[in-house]
């Protein structure tokens, strides 16, 4: 550095909520991905004609109770995820572990229930326009849920694996935020593809 360059006091930049902000950007990106896919779905649905009378569903019957139970399972997992975050912020390791494990089990249960519902519904890929669109949109939403589950598990382990401090808690908070977002993604997809159809 030349002599003419002014000398400034050195300082360490802070990194507040870096992971939370990055997660926010990721959520924005996923929102737009789903908007693209669901927008496509709705445009095709609109082009197929008025709902009663058109054979949009190709004879398929949506098993509403099963999908409803799946959604309830997801909502329950939101409660346990926030319980885990609440416990980790208080350094209550026992509660935090229990809540994270419960959340992961509920998340896996949700995925299982959705797969069961799709099997029961008889959605067969390549069989028709609705089937292909439903497969693509549902697949994307389920992928977001799986990523959320992995993120939650990973951050939970990192957070509780020795560093349940402010930074660890913020990272875990980001994962819980993403899990909330994943639930929202699923809800919007489910409402569009299986309720409004």
């Amino acid at each position: 550095m030349s002599d003419t360059t002014p000398t400034l006091a050195s300082g360490q930049p802070q990194r507040p909520r870096t992971q939370l902000v990055a997660t926010g950007f990721a959520c924005a990106a996923i929102s737009m991905m789903m908007a693209g896919a669901l927008g496509f779905y709705m445009a095709r649905r609109h082009a197929s004609g008025p709902h009663p009378g058109s054979d949009w569903l190709d004879g398929l019957a949506v098993p509403n109770p099963q999908f409803d139970y799946a959604l309830l399972t997801l909502v329950a997992s939101l409660v346990t995820a926030h319980w885990a975050l609440w416990a980790s912020r208080r350094r209550d390791t026992a509660h935090a572990w229990t809540a994270i494990a419960t959340t992961l089990i509920l998340g896996l249960g949700f995925i299982n229930m959705v797969m069961y519902s799709l099997n029961r519904m008889g959605v067969e890929i390549g069989a028709g326009e609705y089937q292909n669109l439903a497969f693509a949109t549902t697949g994307l939403a389920l992928a977001v849920v799986v990523v959320g589950l992995l993120y939650l598990g990973l951050m939970g382990l990192r957070s509780l694996g020795g560093s349940v401090g402010q930074q660890g808690s913020t990272a875990f908070g980001a994962a819980v935020f993403f899990w909330d977002f994943a639930a929202l993604v699923w809800t919007v997809t489910w409402y569009t593809v299986y309720v409004v159809k």
């Binding site: 990106a29 929102s31 991905m33 908007a35 693209g36 927008g39 890929i125 292909n132 693509a136 949109t137």
Partner: peptide
């Protein structure tokens, strides 16, 4: 971040179909 992901949604449908 808020525009390119739309392409991902489109690609998923294009790929499956």
């Amino acid at each position: 971040v808020v525009s390119l992901p739309v392409l991902l949604g489109q690609i998923a449908i294009l790929y499956i179909d």
